[in-house]
């Protein structure tokens, strides 16, 4: 298990991490959710001993990434954000290389990656540089897993990857979790939070909230309303003008609206919209999403 206590790290004037504390349990699929520049990569690099923190501490199964960095490095599989396979080496050469470097063989732990690797095996002699995004990602994951790490650290594995490959990737992670591997994954996509056991929402080097996605939504104490109409732009501008509104955000084909305290009144909003020449707007109360929570917490 992982314990992170009040980590701070500064680069020049920028506070990349500003007192970050999280706890990850054994066998958990833990998500670090936040936009670019939130501090996700810095936190990961400190955990896997590639960076030294300015202050604060971290423990991985009791090991200190600063003092015991050699031991820490033995228990992790790491997939950096811009990984970064050797593009001029073929699929099988990449995999064999990482297996050997980590002191094992492809055969020894093949059962662990079989599920993922068999999908790209037909192309095993193709150079990694000539693979599609989804295939690269599968290869990278196989390479990070081949030495059977106790902890898998994945830095934005799904960024820039299409929705299909993303979904497949999360299914793979679920299966790995079932094998007992603890997984720490970061992502800028809020909708992926729901796929984790627990998440930490992070922005500007600070943790906004840590909990299971369900509990985060549960604890969101404001009612959220979805408003929809044909002309979204017009609807958006008019809702903004409504006096009792606290926030208006487009969500796909709907607007998500919260009211300021004491003025939760969708009927009144409907009347307001009618008076503005939008007679058919559809208003209904909905369950908030992680993204609603994130925006509420970050403002």
């Amino acid at each position: 298990m992982i314990e992170v206590n009040q980590l701070c790290k500064q680069f020049g004037k920028v506070k990349a991490l500003n007192g970050v504390s999280i706890q990850v349990n054994e066998g958990e699929l833990y998500g670090l959710i936040g936009p670019d520049g939130a501090g996700k990569t810095t936190l990961f690099r400190i955990l896997i001993s590639l960076l030294l923190p300015d202050s604060g501490s971290a423990r991985l199964w009791g090991l200190d990434p600063v003092a015991d960095f050699k031991k820490v490095r033995q228990i992790i599989g790491y997939m950096p954000g811009k990984f970064s396979l050797y593009e001029d080496l073929s699929i099988i050469e990449n995999l064999t290389f990482f297996a050997t470097v980590f002191g094992t063989t492809v055969e020894e732990n093949y059962y662990l990656i079989e599920d993922i690797f068999k999908q790209i095996e037909p192309f095993k002699n193709r150079p990694a540089g000539k693979l599609s995004g989804g295939m690269k990602q599968k290869l990278a994951l196989s390479c990070a897993l081949i030495h059977k790490p106790r902890l898998l650290v994945l830095d934005e594995p799904t960024t820039g990857v299409d929705a299909v490959s993303r979904q497949e990737f999360w299914e793979m992670l679920k299966r790995l979790k079932a094998q007992g591997i603890t997984i720490l994954v970061s992502t800028p996509y809020m909708d992926e939070a729901g796929l984790c056991d627990r998440v930490a929402l992070i922005q500007n080097g600070k943790i906004l909230e840590t909990n299971s996605p369900e509990d985060i939504i549960e604890r969101f104490n404001k009612p959220v309303f979805a408003v929809s109409d044909n002309n979204m732009y017009q609807l958006l501008n008019n809702c903004r003008q409504y006096p009792g509104v606290a926030s208006v955000y487009p969500f796909g084909e709907e607007l998500h609206i919260t009211f300021s305290e004491g003025s939760v009144n969708p009927v009144h909003l409907k009347e307001f919209l009618v008076s503005k020449g939008i007679p058919d707007a559809n208003i209904k109360q909905i369950q908030p999403t992680i993204e609603d929570c994130f925006m509420e917490l970050s403002t």
């Binding site: 960024t159 809020m190 732009y233």
Partner: peptide, 24 residues
């Protein structure tokens, strides 16, 4: 081409409002 990749959710929405405005 993927203008909002990695951008935080609030700014992403502000960005889309700018797109609406331009289209308007």
């Amino acid at each position: 081409d993927e203008p909002t990749s990695g951008v935080d959710p609030i700014t992403r929405r502000q960005f889309w409002e700018m797109i609406y405005e331009a289209a308007n």
